[in-house]
Every structure is written in C-alpha cells, then in structure tokens.
C-alpha cells in the first residue's frame, strides 16, 4: 500500500487550499478587486464600492461557501464510514431532499416573500420532521440497510412533494422560481443567511466529528464494533442528528447542492490511512475548498445567466466517478 503523507501535512495543505479559495473568492467576480483594494477595504480605509462588494456581497458568500462545503464534505465522509458504503452521502438519509421540500413549500405558498428567513427556517423544520420520520421507520434496528431503506423512502416522498409543487405551480414563474432554487446557489446571500446556517453547521459538524473512532470500529462489522465498546444506538443518533441539523441548515440557505458529500471523501481518502475517522476533518476542509472554487467558477465562467452551483458540482462529480470506475476495471 502506498504510504500516505503525514496527517499534519495533509491538513496543512488542505487548509492552505481552503485559504487560497477564500481569498480568490473575495477577489474574483464580475468586478475584480485587486489585492491592494481588498486589503484597504478589509482595513476599513478603502473606497466605498470595494467596501460594499467585500462586506455585503463577497464575504457572506465566501463564508457560506466554506461552511456549506465543509458540512457537505464532512457529512458525506461520516455517512460513508457509518454505512460502510462508499456511495453514501447526505441525500441517502433523505436529509437534502427534505430540506429542499421545506424550501419549495415556502416558495410555493408564497411564504418566502413574507420574510427572507421564512425559507431557511421552513427548510430546517422539514429536515427535523424528516429525521423524526426516519427514526420511526428505521425502528430500533441497528442495521445500516434499514436506515438506507428508510432514508430512500423519505427522500422519495420529499422528491414526490417537490415534483407535486412543480406540477401544481400556479404559473411558469413560480415553477421557475422553485427550479432555480433547486439548482442550488449562493448568489445574493447575506449575513442573515450566514447566521442561520453557521450555528447549524457548527452543531452538526461537531456531532459528526465527535467519536470518529466509532466509525473505525464499524470496519469490523456491527458485532465487532459493539464488542469494542461502541454503543451503536448512540452513534446512530449522533450521526443522524448531526446530518439533519448541519445539512438541513446548509441546504436551507444554499439550495440543493449534490455530489460534494459524495466526491470529496473519495478525493481525500488516498491521502489518508483510509480509516473512516482519518477522512472526516480532511473531507470538511476539502469540501470547503471545493465548493468555494466551484462558486468562483459560477461567477467567472461567462454565460448568459449565472450558472447555478448545483449544476457545476454535478459536472465535477462525473469525472470523479469515471476515475473510480476505471480503477475498478483496472483500466488505469
């Protein structure tokens, strides 16, 4: 087996990458801010335009990209470890779809227009309802399969609800509004959004990072893990709550952004010792960097309409899958 770089080197490299992404995200966009202008605006003595662009547009957007990306990457890594399935990601538990359904309901019933916070709050609320349903459906069973089946049932139900809203949309504009939200974006997000998402991401992320060794023990199967002192029920509760709160909060402000949770763990895994716990933090950092870079791409790739973030991440996801497919078939 190829030796992985020391963990500190990997973490430092990912942090540097994340920082580079953040700085680039603050600088780049329709109006490019030079390093000097950026610095002056940061210190509070720059020109007014630069100040507004930085603090009202790019800073919340960048922080959200970092936070949402970190949460998606981390939850993907945690769920892949827990479910012992390299194809797991937050959507397998129905968390993303449920959050999206809440947001779609807010748009459909016009609640989103009442107050900018209605949409994210409804989104988090519906994620919590979905989580409760998931618990009821999965029962006391500790098998990952039961959980996946229950998650698929919930995801399908939420997906059907979203389709219904599109189907019954009173006019094409309403349908368009819903579609646009579903594609995922960080455009025009303010600090108000950040204050909704950040606490959720902090709590959810903390829950997922805690006790990564339980995931390592699950490498030996459920009996093996329990015999090593792992309380499977508690582990499951921690993971479900972490995913629901964190991903719910993230999706509530960003819209549905797929593939980050799926591909980031695959990208960082070869640089670790491959144990589930070793992938958690690197996946969070990697997810933050990836989503921020994707968001820069969204802003800078010339197109008639601004590209949506979910579209870009989906395109990024495909090559990662192809590489894995080729490795599996030993073509490469």
């Amino acid at each position: 087996m190829r030796a992985a770089p020391p963990r500190s080197v990997l973490l430092a490299a990912l942090m540097a990458l994340m920082l580079a992404a953040a700085i680039a995200s603050l600088r780049l966009g329709p109006v490019e801010l030079s390093a000097g202008r950026l610095l002056a605006a940061t210190l509070g003595n720059g020109d007014r335009v630069a100040h507004i662009i930085l603090f009202e547009l790019r800073l919340p957007r960048t922080l959200l990209a970092l936070g949402v990306g970190a949460m998606l990457g981390l939850s993907g890594a945690a769920l892949q470890g827990y479910l012992r399935n390299p194809l797991a990601e937050p959507s397998v538990l129905g968390a993303s779809n449920a959050a999206a359904l809440g947001a779609v309901a807010a748009l459909y019933f016009g609640l989103a227009a009442l107050h900018p916070l209605m949409l994210p709050l409804l989104s988090i609320g519906s994620t919590i309802i979905a989580l409760t349903l998931l618990f009821l459906l999965a029962g006391r069973s500790e098998s990952p399969l039961t959980l996946i089946l229950a998650g698929i049932a919930i995801a399908t139900l939420a997906g059907a609800g979203i389709s219904l809203a599109l189907n019954l949309a009173p006019n094409p504009f309403a349908a368009m509004e819903i579609m646009t939200w579903l594609l995922g974006s960080l455009e025009n997000r303010s600090f108000a959004h950040l204050w909704i998402a950040l606490p959720c991401i902090a709590v959810g992320g903390g829950l997922l990072l805690w006790g990564g060794r339980d995931l390592d023990a699950l490498t030996l199967g459920e009996d093996g893990a329990q015999a090593l002192g792992v309380d499977l029920r508690r582990t499951r509760l921690r993971l479900l709550l972490g995913t629901a709160i964190g991903v719910g909060g993230a999706v509530a402000v960003s819209g549905a952004i797929g593939f980050v949770g799926l591909i980031v763990p695959h990208l960082v895994r070869p640089f670790t010792d491959r144990s589930p716990s070793a992938i958690l933090l690197p996946s969070a950092l990697g997810g933050a960097a990836l989503l921020t870079f994707a968001d820069i791409g969204v802003r800078t790739i010339a197109s008639t309409n601004e590209l949506k973030l979910g579209v870009v991440t989906a395109f990024l996801g495909v090559p990662v899958f192809l590489i894995h497919l080729m490795r599996e078939r030993r073509l490469w």
């Binding site: 087996m1 470890g81 012992r84 060794r213 390592d216 023990a217 699950l218 490498t219 030996l220 199967g221 009996d223 093996g224 015999a227 090593l228 002192g229 792992v230 010792d273 491959r274 144990s275 589930p276």
Partner: peptide, 26 residues
C-alpha cells in the same frame, strides 16, 4: 472480554497496524 467475530469482514482497506490499533478502542 475481547471478541473475534466470525468471518473476516473488513469494510475499509486499513493497514494491519491500524486494524490492530482498533483493539485499543475500549
């Protein structure tokens, strides 16, 4: 009580050293 379960299931490709280290989890 240490337990060696039936079968040789291992879900992730850990190195032998990391695998043995799991025994220290309790």
């Amino acid at each position: 009580i240490a337990y060696l379960p039936q079968g040789q299931s291992l879900h992730w490709p850990l190195t032998v050293e990391r695998l043995v280290e799991l025994g220290r989890l309790p």
